[in-house]
Structure formats: structure tokens, C-alpha cells
Design a protein around this nucleic acid. Structure first.
Length: 216
DNA sequence: AAAACGGGGGC
DNA sequence: GCCCCAGTTTT
């Protein structure tokens, strides 16, 4: 059973599980790259439900680079509280808004290099923004996707970045969105780091690591 | 009380 | 590569 088939099984399985309040749910309320970028930024070190609520509060207050460039960082921080790093994130949001306003004519950059140049934006955030905001092929390799890819033997890499490149080669065109949507959620709910819920995993009989109790 | 959480940045 | 980062939740 190869990676492509396993990914299909995971996708199908996650589709019929109770809907998760995923970050993409917030982001996809509108196909707005700026909202998606900010939601993804806010989601760092923060549970989905908190991210969801914080994003809604922020976007009700302001959802354009022009407005947030001039917003008081303390006000932004108050809106996104109690997300982790909320003061740091508030500063980042203002800086990013200013850069987009001043250097990109108010439009979120639609390229990896453009996004990576923004403060607080790395490969994971950039990939999600490209994939969800612009429908540009990109895999979001967060800690979950990295762990699962190694657990299932799809890749044998040691950094998320290596996994990202390996997955892009391994998967056919079009599968990147399944990674971004289903695999991330699979990692949050079932194939968790410490005590994976192998009893409800559709791949448990085929997984080389069934029953693992460590993050490897 | 301590560990877990998760990505980015600086060196 | 390694260490640091802030604050909430889980153990």
C-alpha cells in the first residue's frame, strides 16, 4: 500500500468525522489571502477554537492591510487575546500590514519568496497562504504532517522542510490540498504525538508504528 | 509544579 | 543544528 492510497484512506476517513473547527474554517469563510495569512499567524501555539474566535474579533475590527497598518498594537493584542504570543503576534500583524501596504500595493504576495520575506512568516504559514488563498500548489508541513509522513514510512526525513520537498515529489498533482486539509487534522485528532488513537485509525493494521507511545 | 504545545528567527 | 521565544492547557 503506497502513500497515495494511504492518503486517500485518511482523506475519506477525516471527511466523515465530526467537523473540526479548523483554522482553515476561519480562513475559508472568505477566500481572502490576507485573512488566511493572519489566521495562520494567529494559530501558532494556539488551539483552533481560540484561533477561530480571535480571528473573528480581529476581522470584525479590521481586515485590510491599510487599516491594520495604522492600528494600535495594544488594541490588536487585546483583540487576539488569549492566543499564545499575542503581543508578539500583534506587532507582527502591524509590521506585515505595513509591508504589504508599502511594498506590495496592498496585496498579499502570491509567491513563496514574497511571503517568506514577511516577519513571522515561514514555510508553513507561506504554504497555507498560497494553497488556501491563491490555490497555488503548496504543502503545509506542520509538526503533524512531518510526524505522520515519517511514521507511515512515506518519507525518512528529519526536518519539516525536507519532508515538504519529499512530499511534493512523492504526491501527484492535486494531492497537496488533501495534505493541507485532511492530514493536518488527522495528526491533531488521531495520529497524535504522544498517545495516538490507533484504535480508531483506518491505517492501524498497516502502520509500522501502531501502538507507539513516543513522538517517533 | 511541570510539561506540552508549534512555528519562526538568530546565531 | 541549537537555542530562544509567551502564554495557555494538560498532566
Amino acid at each position: 500500500m503506497d502513500a497515495a492510497l494511504q492518503l486517500s484512506i485518511i482523506s475519506a476517513h477525516m471527511d466523515h468525522i465530526s467537523p473540526a473547527p479548523s483554522v482553515s474554517a476561519v480562513a475559508l469563510e472568505r477566500r481572502d489571502p490576507f485573512r488566511i495569512l493572519l489566521s495562520t499567524l494567529i494559530s501558532l501555539r494556539t488551539r483552533d477554537e481560540v484561533t477561530l474566535a480571535a480571528s473573528r474579533r480581529l476581522f470584525t475590527f479590521a481586515d485590510t492591510p491599510e487599516a491594520l497598518a495604522e492600528a494600535d498594537p495594544d488594541e490588536i493584542a487585546r483583540l487576539i487575546y488569549p492566543c499564545g504570543f499575542y503581543t508578539v503576534k500583534a506587532e507582527r500583524i502591524r509590521k506585515i500590514s505595513r509591508i504589504i501596504r508599502d511594498e506590495h500595493r496592498g496585496a498579499v504576495p502570491a509567491s513563496f519568496t514574497g511571503l517568506l520575506a514577511l516577519p513571522g512568516v515561514g514555510r508553513k504559514t507561506a504554504a497555507l497562504t498560497l494553497a488556501l488563498g491563491f490555490q497555488i500548489p503548496a504543502v503545509c508541513v506542520d509538526i503533524h504532517v512531518h510526524r505522520i509522513s515519517n511514521r507511515l514510512g512515506w518519507v525518512s526525513t528529519h526536518t519539516p522542510e525536507e519532508t515538504e520537498y519529499a512530499l511534493m515529489e512523492l504526491l501527484e498533482q492535486g494531492r497537496w490540498m488533501e495534505v493541507n486539509e485532511a492530514l493536518v487534522r488527522f495528526g491533531q485528532i488521531i495520529c497524535t504525538p504522544g498517545r495516538p488513537r490507533c484504535s480508531v485509525c483506518p491505517l492501524s493494521d498497516r502502520c509500522p508504528k501502531t501502538g507507539v507511545t513516543s513522538s517517533r
